[in-house]
Computed example of a mutant assay.
Amino acid sequence: MARITLPLLALLGGVAVAPGVARADAIDGHWCSDGGLRLTIQGPNLLSPGGARMSGDYDRHGFSYTAPAGEPGAGGRVDLRLMGDNAVRVQAANGPIEPVWRRCGPPVS
């Protein structure tokens, strides 16, 4: 029977707790719709699909804001709710917004 040495055991334990292995469980980050819209959430701050910077009602798994004029859902409340690590369900009081957005990378300028 093979013997596991102490250095090998330490290496295996280090891999199990390595940074990056942990799963995201917060709504913070960059989100993209299938239609090409983007938004970014950082705590109570939001960069809207039209580029407006605003604050909203934040909790770890959700975010709500009033959509600015000229944007999807304009004038109404938009509610986002985290659905796992990489998807957000979006509900808007005014106007159609794609119901599921996916986590994506930061915008490139």
Results as ranks from 00 to 15, higher is better:
residue 13 G to K: 02
residue 57 D to M: 15
residue 53 R to K: 15
residue 76 G to M: 04
residue 108 V to N: 09
residue 4 I to F: 12
residue 64 S to Y: 04
residue 41 I to M: 05
residue 10 A to D: 13
residue 100 V to L: 15
residue 63 F to W: 01
residue 1 M to Q: 10
residue 108 V to K: 06
residue 35 G to L: 00
residue 56 G to P: 03
residue 87 A to L: 07
residue 1 M to V: 09
residue 2 A to E: 07
residue 23 R to D: 03
residue 28 D to H: 01
residue 47 L to W: 11
residue 105 G to T: 12
residue 29 G to H: 03
residue 88 V to W: 00
residue 5 T to Q: 13
residue 57 D to F: 15
residue 10 A to V: 15
residue 94 N to M: 08
residue 37 L to Q: 06
residue 28 D to C: 05
residue 65 Y to A: 07
residue 87 A to W: 00
residue 41 I to K: 06
residue 44 P to N: 15
residue 6 L to W: 11
residue 31 W to K: 12
residue 70 G to W: 06
residue 93 A to V: 08
residue 13 G to I: 15
residue 78 V to K: 00
residue 24 A to C: 06
residue 29 G to K: 04
residue 3 R to W: 04
residue 103 R to H: 12
residue 73 G to V: 00
residue 24 A to E: 09
residue 52 A to W: 11
residue 38 R to G: 10
residue 51 G to P: 11
residue 64 S to P: 01
residue 74 A to F: 07
residue 5 T to P: 05
residue 67 A to T: 03
residue 58 Y to L: 08
residue 52 A to I: 09
residue 91 Q to W: 06
residue 2 A to K: 04
residue 35 G to W: 00
residue 65 Y to D: 02
residue 65 Y to V: 02
residue 20 G to Y: 10
residue 100 V to I: 13
residue 13 G to V: 14
residue 105 G to R: 12
residue 99 P to H: 14
residue 61 H to N: 06
residue 28 D to M: 06
residue 89 R to L: 07
residue 70 G to I: 05
residue 28 D to Q: 06
residue 93 A to K: 10
residue 20 G to T: 08
residue 26 A to P: 04
residue 51 G to Y: 12
residue 44 P to G: 08
residue 46 L to R: 03
residue 11 L to G: 01
residue 9 L to R: 08
residue 21 V to C: 00
residue 32 C to E: 04
residue 45 N to W: 13
residue 33 S to G: 15
residue 68 P to T: 09
residue 48 S to P: 03
residue 56 G to N: 04
residue 94 N to R: 14
residue 106 P to L: 02
residue 91 Q to G: 01
residue 27 I to D: 01
residue 77 R to G: 00
residue 108 V to M: 04
residue 11 L to S: 06
residue 24 A to S: 15
residue 88 V to M: 12
residue 7 P to G: 00
residue 43 G to E: 00
residue 101 W to S: 08
residue 34 D to G: 15
residue 46 L to V: 12
residue 11 L to N: 02
residue 77 R to K: 13
residue 50 G to Q: 14
residue 74 A to K: 04
residue 35 G to F: 05
residue 62 G to Q: 10
residue 9 L to A: 07
residue 14 G to H: 00
residue 30 H to P: 02
residue 83 M to R: 13
residue 24 A to H: 08
residue 1 M to Y: 13
residue 4 I to T: 13
residue 12 L to G: 02
residue 41 I to W: 00
residue 59 D to R: 14
residue 83 M to D: 15
residue 51 G to H: 12
residue 87 A to D: 09
residue 27 I to F: 05
residue 22 A to Y: 06
residue 89 R to T: 05
